[in-house]
Nucleic acid binder design. Structure first.
Length: 286
DNA sequence: ATAGCGCCCTGGTGGC
DNA sequence: TGCCACCAGGGCGCTA
């Protein structure tokens, strides 16, 4: 399930392929994937525009169009236009070679001027696409309230401490809350809590300074490692080229219930925290 | 404001 | 072998 490292991996590949490519047509196979405009409007708004940079915010991908786009009828359009994509559980955003067979569960296809296609496929249909610009300003609600980016230099231990301070909810629930820290999901929260030897049910506000320091370092280390390995593929995730990640080989607790803890040899236990399957070493994490 | 819960959705799994 | 209940979970809306 795509979290920050998976979304960042997709971004890095899209940014190598998309900038400078102009959309020559749009096919919407599942209308509700496109949340804030109709399929017809999306096609009209996007066709003729040229992709610029590709930006990640939390688990969102932002695909801004360049400012000098024209409709093909000579009409200038405003420069704030962009697509906002969220992969949710099973979404895949790939650039397909010309004439590549369409994969199952394809939901939206953007034809490009070089014959390739930007394709959004999504088995479970939770994924979303929004269009912003030309008077459409209703993006996904969560984007406006996203918390700090954990891999940016400005994400200091003090910033993490402020996100946790005074909260009675389990530390895992707070870390999953995208308003507190952006981009963490179930896998990397479990891994970061294990690495910092903190029990996921511990109330967030009760963490000591030393625990916050360890948690801060662990979040960055786990995310950095996972990005370097191209993300984690449990079942569905593939990158912008359709290739699975490798970090699943390095998971310490997620999906390892009943297997030995690599630190103490004890058995990894699975419990339920914040409504999520949660993996913990009961010896190492207190 | 905060915390918790149900819903969306489909394929895979495990029990009988 | 076949059927079905159940589970995976990110974001969001609702409730207390």
């Amino acid at each position: 399930m795509p979290e920050l490292p998976e979304v960042e991996t997709v971004r890095r590949q899209l940014v190598a392929e998309l900038p400078g490519r102009t959309v020559s047509g749009v096919r919407v196979l599942l209308p509700r994937t496109v949340q804030n405009v109709t399929p017809e409007a999306l096609a009209r708004l996007v066709t003729g525009r040229t992709f610029g940079d590709v930006v990640r915010r939390g688990k969102y991908l932002l695909l801004p169009f360049t400012s000098d786009d024209r409709t093909g009828k000579g009409t200038e359009r405003n420069d704030a236009a962009k697509l906002i994509v969220h992969l949710r559980m099973t979404g895949r955003l790939t650039v397909a070679p010309e004439n590549a067979p369409e994969e199952p569960y394809t939901r939206v296809v953007f034809a490009l001027d070089d014959g390739r296609e930007l394709r959004f496929a999504d088995m479970r249909t939770f994924g979303t696409i929004h269009f912003l610009g030309d008077g459409h300003d209703d993006g996904p609600p969560g984007l406006a309230t996203l918390g700090p980016e954990p891999l940016e230099a400005s994400f200091t231990p003090d910033v993490l401490a402020a996100a946790l301070a005074g909260r009675r909810a389990p530390v895992k629930a707070v870390l999953l809350d995208q308003r507190r820290v952006a981009g963490l999901g179930n896998i990397y929260v479990d891994e970061a809590l294990y690495a910092s030897r903190i029990h996921p049910e511990k109330p967030a506000g009760k963490l000591g300074d030393d625990e916050i320091q360890r948690l801060h370092a662990a979040i960055r280390a786990v995310l950095d490692d996972a990005v370097a390995k191209g993300g984690t593929t449990i079942r569905d995730y593939v990158d912008g080229r359709g290739v699975p990640g490798e970090f699943q080989q390095y998971l310490r607790v997620y999906g390892r219930a009943g297997e030995p803890c690599r630190r103490c040899g004890g058995s990894i236990v699975r419990l339920r925290v914040a409504g999520r399957g949660t993996h913990v070493c009961p010896v190492c994490q207190r």
